[in-house]
């Protein structure tokens, strides 16, 4: 299990990296943390002729807040995401997702932007990005553009990134005042990719003085492991918004999730299983996110 040879390019600066990508285009791959790419190369499932290592671009390892958005630089690892106090308070869904990503040793090396650019449909962060409709900052020698997460994922391991483009930053919206987040997933073993996963972010309207169920102001549901791309559960989201929480509402949202997905079977789970459990986990995650939001408010 030895990878093919390749030309190695250690980028000294971002411009350097972009220039190399521009030169080699389709023949080049970006080496970020390498935790997904290297095993694929070891199995010779991916054999890029050129590898552009962004490891030295250490100035891009910050998590910052600007204009109500939390910006995560391309060198931020999963471990840094998991440990960030800013993420814990401002993007609770990303914080909740982080411990589910692989194992500690993977999180120490793998990067947030790398995972989103790799676009594994069973991975957590692409679903988080979809759930929160993150902004993805994409650079090339041709300039910079911002792609909404809703438009970023095109198919299995394929994205809106052009061959010469690099995902340099992901921007998550900062949570509202009354918000809750929950990630539920079923995997075969601890740390495996999800068979089924649901990333839920709920925001609530300011509580009215009279008692009663809280009203959902904003809902994001990202599904993973359920198709070729991370899926935003659009119908379920719209069912939720403007309504007070209830078991019936969550059941309706779960039904909407199950109706709108077309999961694939594999050796680990059948399509029927995935559809059923998507509904179960949607209910559980909605209830968790609600409890969390209301307990904290």
């Amino acid at each position: 299990m030895k990878m093919r040879g390749f030309e190695y390019h250690r980028a000294a600066t971002l411009d350097d990296a972009l220039a190399t990508l521009s030169e080699f285009g389709d023949d080049a791959k970006v080496l970020a943390g390498g935790q997904s790419l290297v095993p694929m190369m070891a199995m010779r499932l991916s054999s890029p002729a050129h590898l552009v290592d962004t490891g030295k671009l250490t100035t891009h390892d910050t998590i910052t807040e600007t204009d109500g958005m939390i910006a995560i630089g391309m060198r931020v690892t999963h471990a840094a995401l998991e440990q960030s106090a800013l993420i814990a308070t401002a993007v609770p869904l990303a914080h909740a997702a982080a411990p589910h990503i692989g194992h500690r040793a993977i999180r120490n090396r793998g990067t947030v932007c790398g995972s989103i650019a790799h676009a594994d449909p069973a991975a957590e962060l692409p679903a988080v990005a979809v759930s929160l409709n993150a902004q993805l900052v994409v650079r090339s020698t041709r300039g910079e553009r911002i792609v909404n997460a809703a438009d970023f994922f095109h198919g299995y391991l394929t994205t809106a990134l052009e061959p010469d483009e690099l995902l340099t930053e992901v921007r998550f919206p900062k949570r509202g005042a009354i918000a809750g987040a929950s990630v539920h997933e079923v995997s075969r073993r601890n740390g495996d990719f999800a068979l089924v996963g649901v990333a839920v972010h709920l925001e609530f309207a300011k509580p009215s003085t009279k008692k009663g169920a809280a009203v959902i102001a904003n809902a994001g549901i990202g599904l993973f492991g359920l198709g070729g791309i991370p899926i935003a559960a659009v119908e379920a989201q719209s069912l939720l918004v403007g309504n007070p929480t209830s078991d019936d509402l969550f059941a309706a949202a779960a039904d909407a999730v199950m109706r709108n997905i077309d999961p694939m079977p594999d050796n680990h789970a059948t399509a029927q299983y995935r559809r059923h459990v998507a509904g179960v986990l949607t209910r559980r995650a909605l209830a968790d996110a609600t409890n969390q939001a209301l307990a904290a408010s």
Partner: peptide, 27 residues
């Protein structure tokens, strides 16, 4: 396993656990 699952090759890189089969020497 040489594909980053079994953890037998775990070493510390700058004090943090890493799978040495998933890190290129050049990195």
């Amino acid at each position: 396993c040489e594909h980053g699952v079994c953890g037998a090759c775990t070493v510390l890189v700058d004090g943090q656990a890493a799978r040495s089969c998933l890190v290129l020497t050049v990195q």
